[in-house]
Design a protein around this nucleic acid. Structure first.
Lengths: 344, 344
DNA sequence: GCTGCCTCTGTAAATGTTTACACAACAGGC
DNA sequence: GCCTGTTGTGTAAACATTTACAGAGGCAGC
């Protein structure tokens, strides 16, 4: 395999000149550059990336670390894709890694991916689906800059004040509720386990809109520890069993909404004629329901690009902490919402 | 930052001994090993991964290359996840890269990700969602071993005879059709553009089952160049407009099935009472339809793990070509299929 | 007691790039 | 003529690891 030395010899220049031409750094004559490029071409020279990373003292690589080895949702996938694109434009590569808390118990001892404990392997880390802060401490000990997608650490009242990008759960949920109110709904139920911070925030936005309208907030917010989709289904069953049913259901996320949907279809309750349904997150796969599920878009592609940019801004500036950012959401008023039965 | 040299000095041994202990290679005394490990601990030594890769002449890294920069489906995502897991167990890291044919035109000039044209950057490549063979030639020129997910090269009658893993489209489609026949269906329509090799193979399995049962194969197989979901919807409309309608529809994949579903719901045709519906691929997101969509599982996790293993088997054996593998499928007979109306 | 094998350790070589620094040539200003 | 700054090029150092090879010591078998 050809090396800079070979190229230098063939072009009749020194290795330093070759390096300068190839990297476009420092001074060099255009005629010399042509000779060098010709030699590169003829020898089929390809620079060895490890030497480059070593010499430059930077790997030009970022790790996308997924905190859940078993499943990745379509939002995380979209963020991954857009991170990769943004990083690529900046000349960085992305290594994908996932991990699991060793014992499967939240907060238990964690083994970081081997890669990260090696010196110089990556310049920084983008975290997604990570809900326990001991990982952040581990990364800090390794002096690895990181940014966090979402603001979703459980077991603490505090939210991450820096180095994270979230969407505005509260405002998004407020807007979504407003949308349902505008359509004429008065009995709007919320469904989602409020012991989880993101559902708590969304419930907050919902409650605010309801109380401002002089209406009572209600719904299913218990902690059941089951899959989101099952949660939605059970919650819908409960709402339809006890007391007067709502005319609209606002689900904490699209998966829960799909569960609610399932139960409504089973009971032959027509959407949106008899019941309106609103989700949160605008996960692509749920838009194909018929009629399409209304939801709150969190601009997943933008989220990924901004995460990448925030991390890049931190590189080479040890200790720099960037204030947490919150991106706006947008309500997508699709077919699954409409006026309540009474208003027709 | 501590280096092997520091560790060696502190432990009172040579650097060769440190390296041997840390890598568990060659002979060393357990007492010496303890001294070394103690020194590592005290100094907080972390090996520099670039030197390691350089010295070992191997990057221990594999590139997962997605041929479609704009979208990734949940199957590719699952394969990515399981590749990562399998590679990790083997001590390899995974770098994720995506690309797009430059002009957006299939078969046009392609720019490979920068990473791949660097010497030694990755040891091999796993390809997913790549449908044009000029990429394979480019990788061969770079002497990079690769394996391909799916067997989906368009514009050629030949299939990839080596270095690929596919699921058995023909057998899977045959079984799925058999399943519908067993339920009593006689008019079963196929929906999917047979100019695409995977739909052609599935159509082949379907046709075989039909002809063996002495029945006529029919359906919508034209080339419309629209999104799968729209294809399904239009095809369903066409099937219901012309001639006697089928009692079951076998869609070329789950996305098309979802399109068909949409149209059926719109026309208030009940599934499966009036019409049975079968998909292909078992994409997770579609199982939440109510009733759940019957489909053909292609064992996505296994696919990823086998891809990783096939690639690992090729490493260090330049020129080795491994015969293409075909994994079996399994029909998941879920709620969207049932006996035809007449049989009730 | 010699031979050969096994065990353990150290020496030294090899690996390809970037970059600090030196230096040369030349132009322009005084 | 001398100084200064700009431009282009070469020399040499620095980087941390693995590994081939040498060699020392112990021990078993003859």
């Amino acid at each position: 395999m050809a090396t800079v030395r070979d190229v230098a010899r063939r072009a009749g220049v020194s290795i330093a000149t070759v390096s300068r031409v190839l990297n476009g750094s420092g001074y060099f004559d255009e005629a010399t550059a042509r000779k060098v490029r010709k030699a590169v071409e003829e020898l089929g020279y390809r620079p060895n990336i490890h030497w480059r990373r070593l010499s430059r003292q930077a790997s030009q690589t970022v790790c996308f670390l997924l905190g859940n080895r078993d499943a990745m949702n379509s939002m995380q996938m979209k963020v991954l894709m857009s991170c990769e694109r943004a990083l690529n434009e900046a000349g960085f590569d992305l290594v994908f890694a996932s991990f699991r808390y060793s014992a499967g118990v939240p907060g238990s001892r964690l083994d970081l991916p081997r890669l990260l404990v090696h010196q110089g392997a990556v310049d920084g880390v983008i975290l997604a689906g990570v809900h326990y802060s001991n990982l952040l401490e581990a990364l800090s000990r390794l002096k690895l800059p990181y940014v966090v997608m979402g603001n979703t650490f459980v077991g603490t009242r505090d939210e991450l004040k820096t180095d994270s990008i979230t969407y505005d759960d509260v405002a998004g949920a407020y807007e979504a509720t407003q949308c349902l109110l505008r359509l004429g709904h008065r009995r709007i139920a919320f469904v989602g386990d409020v012991s989880l911070p993101w559902f708590r925030r969304r419930h907050g936005g919902y409650s605010l809109a309801m109380s401002r309208a002089g209406l009572e907030a209600f719904g299913v917010t218990a902690s059941w520890e089951i899959r989101n989709i099952d949660y939605g289904q059970l919650a819908a069953a409960e709402l339809l069993r006890d007391g007067p049913p709502p005319t609209a259901i606002f689900a904490g996320n699209d998966e829960i909404a799909a569960g609610v949907w399932k139960e409504l279809v089973k009971r032959r309750i027509e959407i949106p004629r008899q019941m309106s349904l609103m989700g949160f997150g605008d996960r692509e796969e749920f838009s194909l329901l018929e009629p399409p599920l209304a939801s709150v878009s969190v601009f997943q592609e933008r989220l990924g690009a901004e995460l990448a940019q925030m991390l890049l801004a931190k590189l080479g500036r040890p200790g720099l902490r960037i204030p947490a950012r919150t991106l706006p959401c947008k309500v997508l008023e699709r077919g699954s919402v409409g006026p309540p039965p009474a208003a027709r």
